[in-house]
Design a protein around this nucleic acid. Structure first.
Lengths: 248, 248
DNA sequence: CAACTTATTGTATATATTACACTAAGTAAT
DNA sequence: ATTACTTAGTGTAATATATACAATAAGTTG
């Protein structure tokens, strides 16, 4: 699954928009990009980018995306899906991007295809791996200017996430295995930037037989502990109606 | 919109899955690929592929997709959207594909990224343009073995089409501007391979204010002529609920 | 005018959506 | 032990939507 050939393809890359939910808000995983002006002089600049890498020859694109996520998080069993590809000319023409490309010995004129992947996880399941470059979670709402065209890619990823979440039960990918209904509701409220009525939300969840109550309650909270639940994809696959409700 | 630079990028291509509905069934647009065994000897073979082309340097990927569709159909104002990218190693390794790549002077080892686009139109709105190669509509259900990995791409396009159609009003892209409710129903039945109750379907459509009855009836049919309707994207955008019904 | 074809319509039952407010079960501080 | 505090958990009535089901209407053709 994780290939290790060292021969890289210079024009195909993957960019992974790794979303991590921390029980309060949605974060995205960023890595630092360091620009040294003239070969290793001391005026460094640095900024942040999404996580990504070139694909190795012989490696599938999804394998490359899995490798990127695995290297930074140590996790491999998460929601990970292609959402859009970015390959327009001029997407890496900002001065900083050009400088960075030259600094690593690339032709800044070469057209690079970035295949965007969306990944979901609960931040508490992860300890980030420093692999020579700084890595951090940043709340999506406060992300500043990113390197390359990564603000654009992030925006498209958010849009894809919202669309997917409307119609598929992937919100669970942002929660720990055992979660409370309030946590589940909050995920949806955060991502859709809205508010639901608690009773109505729970009535809806109740009908979804794949959200299963456990014989276990929340611990260590200074108030009434909540019931814990889990998501069963197996039950979901068995009980879903093939043609939900659809819009004409 | 339609660029004409002649400098092409050899490793980025678009493949357009152009679906055309002919009031009976769903078709896909194919072009003929001719393989001449040893340089221009007389043992030709030919097979069919999806429509596609390399992108020109300086051209955006969507522009390339529009150009491909426009060149074959003369149409430019249709639903056209990226749905998935195909860039795995070994996707062009079938003997026929290798032969074809060599015949046009390409390195068959080079990894080619194909960005898949989905296009929708009503076949009656189109007269196909023969641009040196044969072009044809083929019913999706009877498509045989295609060149390259195009059977895979077609399958993924069908899946993307079904997913999109469940949640967005794009089915109208497969119908002429004025259509009957029976035609609309049939589009959905064909694509989802199912059958709906006519009364219930109409009740549903009735609630969608963006399906607008015209002061016009079907003509030239040997039975009761049906009311004609049109779709208004403007009304749709104004009346859609931002957060439909969603699945948790 | 009879035969044929497709268009069009309504009702009853079950299920889902929406709006809305109080009680229960814990912890912390006194 | 009582009180204050915090979050969990629950029900009902009104409206809207989904589902199952069959007879009549409006054209054409011979």
């Amino acid at each position: 699954m994780i290939t290790t050939e060292s021969q890289i393809n210079t024009y195909i890359s993957v960019d992974c928009v790794v979303f991590g939910y921390d029980s309060e808000k949605l974060n995205v995983l960023l890595v630092e990009r360091t620009l040294s002006s003239n070969n290793s002089r001391s005026d460094f600049q640095s900024d942040w980018t999404l996580t990504g890498n070139h694909v190795f020859e012989g490696e599938t694109v999804k394998e490359a995306a899995m490798r990127v996520v695995f290297n930074l998080t140590g996790i491999s069993d998460i929601y990970l899906e292609q959402f859009k590809t970015f390959a327009d000319p001029g997407r890496l023409l900002k001065p900083k991007d050009q400088k960075w490309l030259r600094s690593i010995g690339k032709d800044p004129e070469e057209r690079v295809v970035s295949i965007g992947y969306l990944a979901l996880l609960a931040t508490q399941d992860v300890s980030l791996k420093w692999k020579g470059r700084r890595v951090k979670w940043t709340p999506v709402k406060t992300v500043g200017q990113l390197g390359f065209d990564h603000n654009e890619i992030l925006e498209q990823a958010m849009e894809a996430l919202r669309n997917k979440m409307k119609h598929e039960p992937i919100g669970f990918g942002l929660l720990p295995e055992k979660f409370t209904l309030t946590q589940l509701q909050t995920v949806y409220e955060q991502i859709f930037d809205t508010h639901f009525d608690k009773r109505n939300f729970r009535k809806k969840v109740n009908r979804m037989k794949y959200v299963i109550p456990l014989n276990e309650k929340q611990k260590g909270v200074p108030h009434k502990p909540a019931q814990l639940y889990m998501f069963s994809r197996e039950v979901f696959e068995k009980t879903k109606k093939e043609l939900f409700d659809f819009v004409i």
